[in-house]
Design a binder for these strands. Structure first.
Length: 281
DNA sequence: ATGTCGAAATCGTTTCGA
């Protein structure tokens, strides 16, 4: 089973590229972010015509997330609603559409678009930190369901310095500050493991290149799009890669897709090859 | 050197957010 994440930076502008990519890679489920469209205008029919089930949670111009799946999507949840303690519900029930979740093949898929944060110390940065604290509480509640968990999306955080092209200059700044890294690590301490780092520990693997400053041509990127798996899924992981070639498309998204391949539902006869060292945060 | 995008309103040019 292949699960993918891709910040498409407008689902309507990128629809043909999304369909082409789905046809080429054939993932079981693709989780997209920054759809930038209200639900009434989401290109539902065009994806369903291609044989996919879709669910989406969007707003005009900004944010927005969606799931595109070959399998049925069940128990769809919008935002943190349904799990978040009452005193925090108002937080996510506000304007920003950043989370959608569903069960696919008995896996709880949680698709995130973490706030960008703008600059350190800004109001948007404060919101990002608070949102992450809120997400932690959401996960503590989700944990009680005891479902195999796949948390993925655009985190807007480079967790370690190897995840940045120029750590000397950028470490400690926005998307790489201690507060946001620690907030994410706290969430991951709830039994979540970076699927990509199971297979590749080196640097120079990026999932996002800024449109500005010729970042793509100079390969000045960041690894901010992640797939995290609960232990039961991690043990069945066969591979994880970033499909950087689509960043070179004409009129590309600024992000590349990340894909994980799982032996799921587990087949006892298949041995998964993986490194001995499992990274936990 | 933020050098580019996408969307929407202030509309065919500027603004905001990323």
């Amino acid at each position: 089973m292949q699960i993918a994440t891709w910040n498409v930076n407008s689902v309507r502008t990128r629809l043909q590229q999304i369909k082409d990519w789905l046809e080429e890679v054939e993932p079981d489920i693709l989780c997209i972010q920054e759809t930038k469209v209200q639900d009434s205008l989401f290109p539902k029919d065009k994806l369903e015509e291609s044989g996919f089930n879709v669910c989406f949670h969007g707003q005009k111009s900004y944010n927005g997330v969606a799931l595109i799946s070959r399998h049925p999507l069940t128990d769809v949840r919008y935002g943190m609603d349904g799990e978040l303690p009452n005193d925090l519900k108002a937080f996510e029930l506000g304007e920003q559409k950043r989370i959608i979740s569903a069960l696919v093949n008995d896996i709880r898929i949680v698709n995130l678009y973490v706030p960008n944060g703008s600059a350190l110390g800004s109001e948007k940065y404060q919101y990002k930190i608070e949102w992450l604290h809120c997400l932690h509480r959401y996960f503590k509640a989700l944990e009680k369901r005891e479902e195999p968990l796949c948390l993925l999306g655009d985190f807007n955080i480079a967790l370690e310095d190897v995840d940045i092209h120029n750590p000397d200059r950028l470490s400690g700044g926005i998307m790489a500050s201690e507060a946001e890294r620690n907030a994410l690590k706290k969430i991951l301490s709830e039994n979540l493991h970076d699927a990509f780092r199971l297979f590749e520990q080196g640097t120079n693997h990026w999932s996002w290149w800024d449109y500005r400053s010729g970042a793509w041509d100079r390969d000045r990127g960041w690894r901010i799009d992640h797939i995290y798996l609960s232990e039961d899924l991690l043990q069945n992981a066969r591979g994880c890669y970033i499909d950087k070639k689509v960043r070179g498309n004409v009129q590309p998204s600024d992000h590349a897709p990340v894909v994980v391949d799982l032996n799921w539902p587990p087949d006892e006869n298949i041995e998964t090859e993986q490194n001995d060292e499992i990274f936990t945060y």
